[in-house]
Nucleic acid binder design. Structure first.
Lengths: 208, 208
DNA sequence: TGAATATTTGACTATTCAGTCAAATTTATA
DNA sequence: TATAAATTTGACTGAATAGTCAAATATTCA
């Protein structure tokens, strides 16, 4: 008995995520999300108790969406250096796609909304912090493999190094969004990142 | 003849900057700024044509405020490595002060507002991009001195390296704001930054 | 078919928002 | 002290905001 579930909730998640990523949490209204998603406001509040709760759900949904890609990129079967370079390619391509479609580099949705709501929405910050940790664990895993393979200094503190990598990539995405410019990300981010990681830049290690 | 200028405009700039830095552009209202600054709304619009114009003026005002500090930190009379370590100390102390006073790490005001308004306020983005360039010029200047002193690789591309440094510091400040945590900035940012710059970490070069 | 359940609708509120404006007030100076 | 100019005030508007709710509708299955 009972009515079957519809795709309304998913439409709201997708639309909210896109609008907030492109613009900002504060500049996107519930009415705007509903209009774009072709959903009435009453339906919105049937699925989400508040705008903030929708934002949290959208962040969670997007992260779940992203995990399979990260699993593929950071597959243990891939050479660890290749994992990082593939990650940069993956990020760049998404950013370039969005720049073409929306006319603007959009940066990292987690970081943008996290920064915007850092002092207002404790729950959102906690969620972003969790995601940050989760992403860094991919880096730590790859760094351990690099140590085992003798690619980087044996005494590398992988936790610390992972945080450096995350901050570096994050900072670059942020600046790309503000400057609306992917030049650095396209041409310099990859070699800069490898230097930061501490990989010797010989043709031998780079051409896997 | 005529009435002498008052400090109302300055009060509005100070208050707007503080509230937007602590929270966000979208969550701070003109009414909120006026109330905290003890200024009536009519006065606000006597001095600023719009909320966005106030934000631009506040950003400009804060940058003008910051320049003397940067000039001192990046004084050519200071050892170039010391310039960077002093910068980190300067940033950390300000962040720690704000964390204690407001209960929250506030990060970089320029980057936070720039990211928030990247797709909405062209003028604000342009202003932030200008400030970014201006700050990187300090880095480039120091890097050239480091090359001249043989502290880093003679073939270092200073423009590129300055952008790396800026992204790295920016990313760290962003994460500190989101995580509301200054641990990394306090203990690891300095050595990590020197590694990124490419300075050999011997006692000789570090204890200036 | 009919009961049970989930979903959708649209009209509704109360508040907050950015921005306006004419009149009142202050103050420097001639 | 009169004048001129900048400043301040407070009441105002109209639009947008997040959120509410009871009723209508669709769908499932017994």
């Amino acid at each position: 008995m009972g009515r079957a579930p519809t795709n309304t909730k998913l439409k709201l998640l997708e639309t909210a995520h896109e609008l907030i990523w492109r613009n900002s949490y504060g500049s996107v209204s519930v009415d705007g999300i509903c209009e774009k998603a072709n959903v009435k406001k009453g339906s919105f509040y049937h699925y989400f108790p508040s705008k903030a709760d929708l934002a949290i759900a959208a962040i969670e949904w997007w992260m779940q969406n992203t995990i399979p890609y990260l699993d593929e990129i950071f597959s243990p079967s891939r050479h660890p250096i290749d994992r990082f370079t593939t990650l940069i390619d993956f990020i760049y391509e998404k950013q370039e796609d969005m720049r073409i479609e929306y006319g603007h580099v959009c940066g990292c949705p987690f970081i943008s909304i996290g920064s915007e709501l850092a002092a207002q929405e404790e729950k959102i910050c906690q969620k972003i912090a969790d995601i940050t940790k989760q992403k860094m664990s991919y880096f730590e895993n790859a760094l351990r493999d690099m140590i085992a393979m003798g690619l980087i200094d044996q005494n590398t503190d992988v936790i610390l190094k992972a945080e450096e990598i995350y901050a570096f990539i994050t900072g670059n995405m942020m600046l790309a969004r503000i400057k609306n410019d992917l030049k650095f990300m396209k041409t310099s981010l990859k070699p800069s990142l490898l230097t930061l990681i501490g990989v010797e830049r010989t043709t031998e290690t780079l051409n896997i």
